[in-house]
Computed example of a mutant assay.
Amino acid sequence: MEMNFLAVIVAALSTMVVGAIWYNPKVFGTVWMKETGMTEEKAEGANMFKIFGMAILFAIMISFVLQFSVIHQFGSLGMIGGNPAVAKPSYEAFIADYGHAFRTFKHGALHGFMTGLFLGLPVIGTNALFERKSAKYILINGGYWIICFTIMGGILCAWE
């Protein structure tokens, strides 16, 4: 089982598409700006190359790790220490039988959703609580990551 680095990159880039929609002023952008204290003046003075560059890098890091949660076959690979060359014949038979099992967008999206709900949202929520942010802030940003994890999981799992 080899990693599909193109799928990792595409899944990471999907966060930019979701963000362009999610944080659009006609969706949650205006409310998000109010909840964060962001103004048009602050936004205009930002180094967008740095912001988007780091956001893409972070999304790649998330995508890279998320694949291990949404693709079950990585679990069997882990059981043999990650090196199929040293595996017993039973591993090859297992992969021949189950190597494509549960490799669908729907299945990956389910695991991505659960990861977003039970990992992404609590991280966002915990930071927001200590930063004294509102419930709206938590729901907007947590919701964004739940959607992103769902789509990323679907892409990673379906794209063999």
Rank of each mutant, 00 (worst) to 15 (best):
K136V: 02
G153P: 08
G108D: 12
G108P: 05
M114E: 11
I60E: 03
F149E: 02
W145G: 00
W32N: 05
L129Y: 14
G112N: 12
I147Q: 00
K106Y: 04
T104W: 03
M61T: 07
I124R: 00
A55M: 11
N4W: 04
A59C: 09
S134P: 11
G81I: 00
G125S: 11
Q67S: 08
S69K: 08
A43V: 03
I138S: 02
K106H: 03
I62H: 09
A55N: 11
G81C: 01
M33C: 08
I124P: 02
E131M: 14
I80T: 04
L121Y: 12
I138P: 01
R103Y: 04
G75S: 12
M3E: 10
Y98D: 06
T15W: 05
L119S: 13
F68Q: 04
M114N: 12
V31I: 15
I138E: 01
A87L: 03
K88Q: 13
F58Q: 07
G108A: 14
F149W: 08
K34G: 07
N4Q: 01
A7R: 07
I95E: 04
A20H: 02
I80C: 07
A158T: 06
V123N: 11
K133S: 09
A135F: 14
C148W: 03
F28Q: 05
V17R: 01
H100R: 07
E92S: 05
F64Q: 09
N4H: 10
K88W: 00
V8Q: 04
Q73L: 14
F28S: 05
H107Y: 15
M16W: 07
V18D: 03
I60A: 06
Y144D: 01
N4F: 11
H107W: 12
N127D: 05
T115D: 13
G37P: 10
S76C: 00
L77T: 02
G19V: 00
V70C: 05
K88G: 15
Q67K: 10
I146Q: 04
Y91T: 04
G112W: 06
N141D: 13
G81E: 02
L66V: 07
I56K: 10
W32Y: 13
G19Q: 11
A96N: 14
G53V: 06
K42V: 05
L121E: 04
A20Y: 11
E160M: 06
H107A: 12
A46W: 01
A101V: 11
G108I: 03
V65Q: 10
G154F: 00
I60V: 15
I80Q: 03
S76L: 04
T104Q: 03
R103K: 12
A85Q: 10
G142V: 02
K26Q: 11
K106R: 10
V10R: 03
